[in-house]
């Protein structure tokens, strides 16, 4: 894929994520990790090539069917993209609210999840008043709250201390154990080694698979 008339960012990329698998996506900064994830959560369309998500070719997917597909994918954005006018609680509950679930049916789950990522005391705070690490954890909580079939996380441990990084990795592994496929873009090699999962390496627009 390419941005506008720019150079082709991803050129030779071919892989398959089995349901319930756990992968890391690594590569130097600017290698195109974020770009690849954007393709996968359908924020960008590929300029060429075939991308199939849950058995659907996303290039020909009608616009009206995008929401259903996106609800099966949880995304942790590199720059978090929390909604500043909502509280942390509301941000995390957003995917459930969008699915039309009544608040009473998920309130306790959301609080429990927030407490688990260490934001129990910050539920009513708005994102601008959160620290970088807190924002990151809120973004992760939002991505996992609806138990998606696929979780895409872009540098999800970039702003937290190693201790919290391990804790978050446990959250991802727990989610994976429950059946969610996980793809984590990172350049934190300690994290990759800790998990010992398959590594997709991006470099110069090409993808190689290790492990």
């Amino acid at each position: 894929m390419r941005y506008g008339m720019g150079p082709e960012v991803l050129r030779d990329v071919s892989f398959h994520l089995a349901p319930g698998s756990f992968h890391f996506l690594t590569g130097p900064s600017g290698a195109g990790k974020t770009s690849l994830l954007k393709l996968m959560f359908m924020a960008q369309r590929p300029s060429r090539g075939l991308i199939t998500m849950f058995g659907r070719d996303i290039a020909t997917l009608p616009r009206a069917e995008l929401p259903d597909l996106r609800r099966r994918v949880g995304v942790v954005f590199q720059e978090f993209r929390l909604l500043d006018h909502l509280t942390t609680y509301e941000n995390v509950a957003l995917p459930l609210r969008i699915q039309g679930r009544p608040e009473a049916s998920y309130r306790d789950d959301v609080r429990e999840l927030l407490a688990w990522v260490g934001l129990g005391e910050r539920m009513q705070a708005r994102p601008p008043t959160l620290s970088g690490g807190e924002k990151q954890r809120a973004a992760i909580a939002r991505a996992v709250v609806a138990q998606p079939d696929l979780l895409l996380a872009d540098e999800p441990t970039g702003n937290v201390d190693p201790e919290m990084g391990k804790r978050l990795l446990r959250l991802f592994m727990e989610l994976n154990r429950l059946g969610t496929s996980i793809l984590i873009a990172t350049h934190d090699h300690a994290l990759v080694e800790e998990a010992g999962a398959t590594e997709l390496m991006l470099k110069g627009g090409r993808l190689t698979i290790r492990g």
């Binding site: 609680y89 429990e112 407490a115 539920m123 727990e174």
Partner: peptide, 19 residues
């Protein structure tokens, strides 16, 4: 996420207007 190791949910007042 009912399966996450639970800490007791904090009991702060109603989070969103629940009518």
């Amino acid at each position: 996420m009912a399966n996450t190791p639970a800490k007791p949910a904090s009991d702060d007042p109603a989070v969103l207007g629940e009518e």
